[in-house]
Write a protein that binds this DNA or RNA. Structure first.
Lengths: 246, 246
DNA sequence: AGACGTTTAATTGTCTGACAAATGAAAATT
DNA sequence: AATTTTCATTTGTCAGACAATTAAACGTCT
């Protein structure tokens, strides 16, 4: 683990990279304690604040955790799927909001990935996953539900579908695609009529999953994708009409 | 943007969260200059090193960039897909290596997602993407190629297939699944015979993409998935045999 | 001897003050 | 008017200090 001392700028970034590479290469195994900040400062020939900035960079990526006290220090953190979900969702939201990604593009990606999950989900779904899906469908039918709550329930429904595949790697990858779309979905106003249509499709999808019928599940996902695109187009059309009227 | 002053620990994490939330909510738009470190220190009633640690956390996530000089400072960064790729891949590699994810689970996820891309790729593939795929196939056939280089070319081939779908969101999500598997793939020793088989499947896949035949492309992906699983099982079987012999 | 409270050393978290380096704007000079 | 110089601002880094936390070492009492 060495840094380039000739470039006296970005020292903390260089140190963070050196430690990160050591973790990736396996030289620093999980739960291994790093040297203390004072020792690291001496090793890299920098001051303690600089070392601390480097450690905070790593902590932001959940690569290390720190503990105070006599036997404390910085430890290589076992990256949990749970922690990675959060980062993945944040990054997805940022990407979609900052890069003018169209609803159509994001929606296409989301449903393409979900359709990839569906055959596995229909095979492996447990009673638990199915119950979650049914519960969310029931929630979606309740009167007085705000659009945001309806969207959140929609996300939970689809998360259950994805998790039913029983593959944590798939769940992780899909978390970004499904949850990252929520801000875009929130632009849509769900009328009572459109909610009915979505709930009907969700029910049919849940039925297909219960019957372990992957063909029907796929058909329903295609219908959901098409209907989502249609709703978004209506929103855009209305907005354009309002703009033209001005 | 406020923090809880009653808890005098994790101040930098709290400040980072406050700023991150402001960025996500849109209160701080892209390219907006944050207050200077001295001003932030005053606003949050903390010292400058604490503010700096918070900013480094955000920089580690590519949420801000900093610039020295008179008109410098920290600016909200437009998160590029390119930047997000790198983080995605690093996180995926960590997740797979630290959580005892089996080759079978990772492989299943990867090919499920790739099959989701394939129909779009066959529809939209450009001559450019096809040329990249052909070039990587050619590289894979060269004698004297190390296993690592063969794997890297395999990844490049599949990246081209994914990018051919013309959906940056899909490419981003798939980057983790495809490139994150590389360390696992590197465990496999590719004999001349197994390379031949893989190259034949790649060629058939490229042919299907060229002919815009999504059914054939899907069949070849399924075959590739099965063959990858078979190779991995052989490696595991050999390893177990060696262990039993001891 | 064993259980329990106390001290102590190590470590992170934070603060203060300082200087160096970069950089654009303003001022001075040609 | 163009160029050079100066200057103010801001980040990057450093040194030293103290507070808070924590577990181990130590001492004391039963």
């Amino acid at each position: 683990m060495k840094i380039d001392p000739t470039n006296p700028a970005d020292l903390s970034a260089q140190i963070a990279k050196a430690i990160r590479d050591a973790i990736i290469s396996g030289a620093l195994p999980v739960d291994k304690r790093l040297p203390s900040e004072a020792e690291l400062a001496e090793q890299f020939a920098v001051s303690r604040p600089t070392v601390r900035e480097a450690l905070k960079r790593l902590a932001a990526q959940s690569l290390i955790r720190t503990q105070r006290g006599a036997t404390g220090g910085a430890f290589v953190n076992r990256l949990k799927f749970e922690d990675a979900y959060g980062q993945q969702i944040t990054t997805s939201i940022m990407l979609l909001s900052m890069n003018d990604v169209s609803f159509a593009t994001a929606c296409e990606a989301r449903y393409a990935l979900e359709r990839a999950c569906a055959p596995l989900s229909t095979q492996r779904r447990s009673a638990d996953h199915l119950a979650t899906m049914r519960a969310e469908i029931h929630r979606q039918g309740q009167p007085g539900l705000t659009d945001e709550a309806f969207c959140a329930s929609d996300v939970a429904f689809h998360r259950a579908l994805v998790d039913a595949a029983g593959n944590p790697v798939l769940s992780y990858q899909l978390a970004g695609a499904v949850e990252g779309m929520q801000p875009l979905m929130n632009m849509i106003t769900f009328t009572a009529r459109s909610r009915e249509t979505i709930i009907a499709l969700h029910t049919a999808l849940a039925d297909a999953v219960e019957a372990r019928d992957s063909t029907k599940a796929d058909e329903n996902l295609v219908s959901l994708a098409q209907y989502s695109q249609q709703l978004a187009q209506e929103v855009i059309a209305k907005r354009n009409a309002a703009r033209a009227a001005k």
